[in-house]
């Protein structure tokens, strides 16, 4: 197939061969994983908790279990997320769960129901509250930082840091993080600055393991060692191109000129 013929639309488009599709298992009441149980127990026992687990392993579920308890005991909580769009999404989820009057959303350009017992905020707004109106957080027992590894973000990390340092001292901190190698160090830092122990829960395994493949220029699927080998070969062939018969003369001339 030449490059040009690819540009012409095919008369009949390619289709995927479909087996009888299995419908995904409904996400109903899943059994809790041990790390989730451990995290929830520590939270309900009143600890500050830092959870590090890969994406998609159900960190949010931990936060939801905590929120259930906080809300039913008539206290308040704050949920911070790194991105505005995500805050809006979370707000919608929580409204569906707890009803409109119990949930608020504050993102800077938007402010709904500021007095609600569950507030979804951007981290920046929470940081501002910690400075300017801590009295608004008097009855708030927990702050949940989703994606707390954003601490490492060169532009926005400061908001997370100032929030953790200046959150009113009665508030418990819940950090949900992607897998990072120094969770313990971060936890120790939080424990130091908040003068309170922090429970660390780490889950290394993914709910669904990943399999990495590389796709060669010919469209073949390669494993890592095959891919490395393949790239090495290609690089060599590329350098070797100078030695192809029709080019060898040119390369020779070039070298001669170079030597002068």
């Amino acid at each position: 197939m030449t490059k040009n013929s690819e540009k012409v639309p095919r008369k009949h488009k390619r289709r995927v061969f479909r087996r009888d599709r299995i419908e995904p298992v409904p996400a109903g009441p899943l059994e809790l994983d041990p790390f989730q149980v451990k995290a929830i127990d520590s939270l309900l026992a009143g600890f500050d908790v830092l959870v590090a687990a890969p994406t998609g392993t159900g960190k949010t579920l931990i936060a939801e279990k905590l929120l259930e308890q906080v809300m039913s005991s008539g206290k308040s909580a704050v949920y911070t997320s790194p991105i505005k769009a995500l805050s809006n999404q979370k707000y919608r989820d929580f409204v569906a769960e707890y009803g409109k009057e119990k949930v608020g959303l504050i993102t800077g350009d938007l402010s709904i129901n500021e007095g609600a017992s569950l507030l979804v905020m951007t981290t920046e707004i929470f940081r501002n509250w910690c400075f300017a109106n801590p009295e608004m957080l008097e009855h708030t027992t927990h702050v949940i930082f989703d994606e707390v590894h954003f601490l490492d973000d060169p532009e926005r990390g400061t908001a997370w840091e100032e929030s953790i340092i200046f959150a009113p001292s009665h508030m418990r901190i819940v950090g949900l993080s992607a897998t990072v190698p120094n969770v313990l160090e971060i936890a120790n830092w939080i424990a130091d600055i908040r003068e309170r122990p922090v429970k660390v829960i780490v889950e290394k395994n993914r709910a669904v393991p990943l399999e990495l493949n590389w796709v060669s220029v010919e469209g073949e699927l390669l494993f890592e060692d095959e891919a490395r080998e393949y790239i090495k070969e290609r690089n060599e062939r590329r350098k070797g191109r100078w030695m192809e018969p029709e080019l060898a003369g040119v390369a020779g001339d070039f070298e001669k000129r170079g030597r002068k």
């Binding site: 995904p24 998609g56 669904v208 493949n213 590389w214």
Partner: peptide, 29 residues
Amino acid sequence: FFQMAGRAGRRGFDPVGRVYVRIDDRFPE
């Protein structure tokens, strides 16, 4: 990379999440 790659694999549905990295013809290195 893993923040993105980790979207592969639907729980209770896929036995593994598959991640594919394309090798670019022009810049294999």
